[in-house]
C-alpha cells in the first residue's frame, strides 16, 4: 500500500519541519513515497523511510494550490496510492480540497494521529476548540489526511532515495496569476506551528515582548501571540495563534498576559502542558492551565528565566 507524502519546502529547497514527521508517520502505514513539487533541487539527504521521491515539474507557478494538487493527482494516479499525507496548513487545505474533488477522496484535516484499521485509514483529531477528541474513518478508496505538527517523531535524515521525474504538461485548473510573492525570512526561532515549546504574549504584554523573548531564548521556544497583539502591530501577523491563525500543539505552552478567549483556545488547547501568567484571576485561560500564576508577567517571567539559567549553571 503506497502512502504519498507532500514534501513541503522553502524556495531554497530546505524542508519544512513537519516533513520528517509526516515521513515517519507514513512509514508506519505503508510504503512511503515523497512528492517534491517544483524547481528547487531535491536535497541530498531526506528523512529516512522513503522508498522513492517523485519530482514533479508543473505547468504553472509551483506555489499555487492547483499546481500542487495537479502534481499529487498525477503521482497518485501513477502509483495507485491509497493515501496522501500533507502538513495541516491553510495552503495545504486548499490543495487537499481540490485533490479530494479530483480523486473523489475522503479528506480529514488537523489529524493528530493516523492508523490503518481493517484496511481503512483512521485519523484522530480534536474538535470544538480542543474540547472533544474524535476518530474519523475514511470510507472512500483514497484517503487525504492533513496532519498537524507534532503527530510523530521526525524521521532522521539519510541518503536520498531514487528520484523519479514527472511533468504536468497542462492544467485543467482555471488560471490564477501570482502577481507577487515574497517568502519571509525565518525568525531564527523554531517554526511556530511545529515548535515543542511556545511562549505566547497577549494584551497584558502592552507591546513589550522583551521578557517573553528572553524566556524563549532559554527554552528554545517559538514566540506566538493573540489576535489583540497582532492587531496592535506589536508582533507580525504570522505569530497569531487561534482559529483563523496558527494552530499549535506543543509539549509546553506558556501564555503571558493572555486572557484565553475562545478563538485563541481553539488554536492551542491541545498543548501538552499549559502555563498561564495573568494579573486577572478571572482570566478564562486559568480554566485550562496546568500551572497558573496570578501575577505580573514583568515580575514573573524574568524571575523564571533567571532561575532556569541558574539551575543550568
Amino acid at each position: 500500500m503506497t502512502v504519498l507524502v507532500l514534501l513541503d519546502h522553502a524556495d531554497s529547497g530546505d524542508l519544512r519541519a513537519t516533513a520528517p514527521e509526516l515521513v515517519a508517520l507514513a512509514s508506519t502505514l505503508g510504503s512511503a513515497e515523497g512528492v517534491w513539487v517544483g524547481a528547487a533541487p531535491v536535497p541530498g539527504r531526506l528523512p529516512s523511510g522513503l522508498a522513492r521521491v517523485h519530482r514533479v515539474a508543473v505547468a504553472h507557478d509551483e506555489h499555487l494550490a492547483t499546481s500542487v494538487s495537479d502534481a499529487l493527482a498525477l503521482v497518485a494516479g501513477e502509483t495507485g496510492a491509497s493515501a496522501v499525507l500533507l502538513a495541516s496548513t491553510f495552503e495545504n487545505k486548499d490543495v487537499a480540497a481540490r485533490l479530494g474533488v479530483a480523486l473523489r477522496a475522503g479528506v480529514v484535516t488537523d489529524a493528530d494521529s493516523v492508523a490503518v484499521e481493517d484496511g481503512r485509514f483512521v485519523a484522530g483529531k480534536t474538535v470544538l476548540a480542543g474540547t472533544w477528541t474524535t476518530r474519523v474513518e475514511v470510507v472512500a478508496p483514497v484517503a487525504i489526511v492533513l496532519v498537524k505538527a507534532g503527530a510523530a517523531d521526525p524521521a532522521p535524515p539519510s541518503g536520498a532515495p531514487e528520484v523519479v521525474d514527472h511533468t504536468v504538461d497542462s492544467s485543467s485548473a482555471a488560471p490564477v496569476e501570482v502577481v507577487e510573492r515574497a517568502e519571509r525570512a525565518g525568525t531564527g526561532r523554531p517554526d511556530l506551528a511545529s515548535a515543542q515549546v511556545v511562549v505566547v504574549g497577549g494584551r497584558g504584554t502592552e507591546g513589550d515582548f522583551g521578557p517573553l523573548e528572553e524566556l524563549a531564548d532559554v527554552l528554545g521556544a517559538a514566540i506566538g501571540a493573540t489576535r489583540v497583539a497582532t492587531d496592535e502591530g506589536w508582533i507580525a501577523r504570522d505569530a497569531q495563534i487561534g482559529q483563523t491563525g496558527v494552530t499549535v500543539s506543543p509539549r509546553l505552552y506558556i501564555g503571558a498576559g493572555v486572557s484565553g478567549a475562545v478563538h485563541h483556545r481553539g488554536g492551542m488547547q491541545a498543548a501538552g502542558t499549559i502555563v498561564a501568567i495573568n494579573n486577572d484571576p478571572d482570566a478564562p485561560i486559568f480554566e485550562i492551565a496546568d500551572f497558573g500564576i496570578v501575577g505580573d508577567l514583568f515580575e514573573v517571567l524574568p524571575q523564571t528565566t533567571a532561575e532556569l539559567r541558574r539551575l543550568r549553571g
Binding site: A10, E177, V178
Partner: peptide, 12 residues
Amino acid sequence: ELDHADETLRAA
C-alpha cells in the same frame, strides 16, 4: 498572508 510568505494573486 501565508505561514511563510506574502502573496498577491490575480484571476479573471
